[in-house]
């Protein structure tokens, strides 16, 4: 699945055993795609000695801090690079 800048996306909160690069505090949270990055080998398989192929695209996603943390009062944002297979349309 590809995402255009400005697309609203949700970070999947599916359970996952083993190494992955999706921080727990973002799982289930909704953000906006800032831009697509390059494709990279998949750390979830590469961590176990495999080649990490096929490469997956990474997206820079922006989150409103007030949507991440109860009581956060200002319009600050948090950005993270999230692998495409952890993103869903929102």
């Amino acid at each position: 699945m590809t995402f255009e800048p400005g697309a609203r996306v949700r970070v999947s909160d599916r359970p996952h055993e083993g190494h992955h690069r999706t921080p727990g505090y973002l799982k289930g949270k909704t953000g906006v795609v800032e831009r697509g990055r390059a494709t990279f080998t998949n750390p979830e398989t590469r961590a176990y000695g495999e080649d990490g192929l096929p490469e997956r695209r990474v997206y820079l996603v922006g989150f409103e801090q007030r949507e991440l943390w109860p009581g956060y009062e200002l319009d600050d944002r948090l950005f993270a690079d999230v692998f495409e297979h952890w993103l869903e349309d929102a």
Partner: peptide, 11 residues
């Protein structure tokens, strides 16, 4: 605006 950037992946 404070923008926290979490280096979560490859960059």
């Amino acid at each position: 605006e404070v923008r926290v950037v979490d280096s979560t992946a490859e960059i």
